[in-house]
C-alpha cells in the first residue's frame, strides 16, 4: 500500500481534521507500518463468506408510529454554551 502526504491530506479532509505539518509526516510513516500489518488479511479467503455487521443475530424492533414526549426546546439547547440564538443552534456560515 502506497502511503504519501497526498493520501493523508485527502483522508484528513474527508475526516474534517486540520492536521499540522508534523502530524501529516507522522501519519505517513505510521500508516505505512499499520496498513502493512493489516494487509495480512489479503491471504484470507472470504469469497463465499458473508459479512458480520453484528456478532449476534439482532432482530429489528419497530414501535408504533405515535408521538412520544421528547426534550423541550430549552432542554435541547441547554448544552450549547454560546452558539445559540432565538431558540436555535447557531453554526458557522453555510455559504
Amino acid at each position: 500500500m502506497k502511503v504519501d502526504k497526498e493520501l493523508i491530506l485527502h483522508v484528513a479532509e474527508v475526516a474534517r481534521l486540520k492536521l499540522t505539518e508534523t502530524e501529516v509526516k507522522k501519519f505517513v510513516s505510521e500508516f505505512k507500518e499499520i496498513l502493512d500489518a493489516f494487509s495480512i488479511l489479503d491471504e484470507i479467503n472470504v469469497e463465499k463468506t458473508k459479512m458480520s455487521i453484528q456478532p449476534v443475530d439482532v432482530k429489528n424492533v419497530l414501535r408504533e408510529d405515535k408521538a412520544e414526549e421528547c426534550f423541550s426546546q430549552e432542554k435541547a439547547l441547554a448544552q450549547a454554551k454560546t452558539h445559540k440564538k432565538d431558540g436555535y443552534f447557531k453554526g458557522p456560515k453555510a455559504v
Binding site: 474534517r16 486540520k18 448544552q79 450549547a80 452558539h83 443552534f89 447557531k90 456560515k93 455559504v95
Partner: peptide
C-alpha cells in the same frame, strides 16, 4: 463544536470550523 461540548469561535465555513 456545536450543540454540546467544547465550542470555539465561530469562524470560516462549516468545514473550516468543524476541522
Amino acid at each position: 463544536g456545536m450543540k454540546y461540548g467544547k465550542e470555539e469561535m465561530l469562524k470560516g465555513n462549516f468545514n473550516e470550523y468543524f476541522s
